[in-house]
Amino acid sequence: MNILEVKDLCKTYIINKRQNNVLKNVNFSVSEGEMVAIMGPSGSGKSTLLYTVSGMDTLTAGEVKFCGKDIAKLSEKELAGLRLDEMGFIFQQMHMLKNLTVLDNIILPATQSEKANETRKETVQRGHELMRKLGIIDIADNDINEVSGGQLQRACICRSMINNPKMIFADEPTGALNRTSSDEVMAELAKLNSDGTTIMLVTHDVKVAARCTRVMYIVDGNIKGEYNLNRYENESQMRERERALNNWLMEMGW
């Protein structure tokens, strides 16, 4: 079943009376359980695509259906509710509230949501569980400025997961991390995906993209090509996958 359907999506920014057509008639769909990577040169509209399909930004034309709902027809409040309960977000440099501990930041969306209907104790328990899973349980009570970039990014993953979303959107989630942290974070995302969460992520990193099930290459606001990979199974396949993907990307003009 398709969780996300995008039809003739256009996005135009107007700056100083000059139109900037960032997305031009984009069509694609994502079915449940997929892990889609979006790649492309800088400024090609990758982030914009992510924001418009997740309801964080408005669309200029076209149609985006998330779980069958036309997001253009939803109010700001309904969109916020959808993002709260059904979507998770991870950005390259994500803000957390400085005055809260890491744990409190992670469970913040849960305290706002009416989805789970649980006590604060239960929420904290779930928060701890997620943190344990991602190996950052030690920093639960730390302040935000006391933790490293890799830990923070994993905390962001925890936060994006706290309301058990159907789909996670990630914009260069490993962009600010070193190789080791990046690999660890990607491993976690892949794990989430194999547990059933659909993921769509923007990346510049071939190693990151090689863990996905599909890669979309976008140039100048158009999808120039798609590349399907088998489900990633073990580390030994990794080199081969990367090499194949690299070749394809070269063809695309990477």
Binding site: M56, E76, A80, R83, L84, D85, H95, L97, L108, Q112
Partner: peptide
């Protein structure tokens, strides 16, 4: 601004 935008991104509406 960043924190507010983040809150909105993760699903807080303006009234919250």
């Amino acid at each position: 601004q960043g924190e507010i935008a983040t809150l909105k991104a993760i699903g807080f509406n303006t009234s919250s």
